[in-house]
């Protein structure tokens, strides 16, 4: 008798696992059907849930950073997320952070794992076809982090050098365009994360680490510097699902309000940006 209980338990366990898999699949499909109707209020859903799910960077100091000293998310984008959470749920604490990279943020948004992505997400025409973006909350440009000892002065001095860029970022396309304008050429190395790129620079795998200047600023140390030259203005927006305009309209209102009353400026100053 004892053993048959064990069998039952085992079968129950495996059954529940199978249903778990099945459910997560179903959820994904039903999610899609929801999108097309989009009649039920997404904001209301977040309110009911009581938690705002936000995709944020964890490796970009001053923007979205998981601070090893405190083991907490911090940065200007985290502050914006907190403000939004406060606005929707009534408390800045009701946030569930999900760490994302340039590669992972799109798919996570598609699947509804996060309500919105605030992760140095540059607004481009191409991306606008797939996602909704709010008005920009921050403007930046692409820059280069180089070793001081290499004596690079401007973009042109990097002619023929190897530039490290993040996989799935817009940097490579922007660089190719700029290089064509200037009549120079670059070699590229694509790596998965910013820390890896920084290490690649330290170890001379690349001559310059290129991404938005603000991101670079978190990686400057005694032996490296950011070139003054920058190009290709980058505007960061909060991304939400394309199928759901409601959240986007709502967020747009908030951003505009915070731009006017100086809240946004305060946050930007707080993190020493610009």
């Amino acid at each position: 008798m004892k053993i048959s209980k064990k069998i039952m338990l085992g079968m129950l366990l495996s059954l529940s696992l199978i249903t778990l898999f099945a459910c997560s699949k179903k959820e994904a499909t039903s999610d899609k059907s929801n999108d097309s109707s989009s009649s039920n209020s997404q904001i209301q859903k977040i309110k009911d849930r009581g938690v705002l799910k936000v995709g944020v960077k964890e490796d970009v100091p001053n923007f979205g950073y998981m601070n090893p000293d405190t083991n907490k998310n911090e940065g200007m984008e985290i502050d914006i997320a907190k403000l939004i959470a406060k606005e929707i749920t009534g408390s800045a604490k009701n946030i569930e952070y999900t760490g994302v990279t340039a590669k992972t943020r799109g798919p996570l948004l598609d699947n509804g794992e996060v309500d919105m992505v605030i992760a140095t997400f540059t607004i481009t025409d191409e991306r606008k076809e797939t996602y909704n973006f709010t008005t920009p909350y921050y403007e930046d440009q692409v820059g280069f982090l180089v070793k001081k000892s290499d004596d690079f002065s401007d973009i042109k001095s990097l002619d023929g050098k190897t530039i490290g860029v993040a996989q799935s970022a817009t940097t490579k396309q922007a660089l190719e365009q700029k290089a064509k304008e200037l009549g120079i050429s670059f070699k590229y190395l694509e790596l998965g994360s910013y820390p890896e790129l920084k290490t690649a620079l330290t170890s001379k795998r690349i001559d310059a680490f290129s991404v938005d200047k603000s991101i670079l600023s978190g990686y400057v140390d005694k032996s490296t510097e950011i070139l003054d030259d920058g190009f290709s203005p980058q505007e960061y927006g909060i991304a939400t699902k394309k199928s759901n305009d409601e959240v986007n309209t709502y967020l747009n209102k908030l951003i505009k309000k915070w731009q006017k009353d100086g809240t946004l400026d305060k946050i930007i100053k707080k993190w020493d940006l610009n």
């Binding site: 090893p68 820390p195 920084k198 290490t199 330290t202 990686y219 140390d221």
Partner: peptide, 9 residues
């Protein structure tokens, strides 16, 4: 370790 390396290079 990779994240720490971004800081301690």
């Amino acid at each position: 370790a990779n994240i720490l390396m971004g800081r301690y290079a």
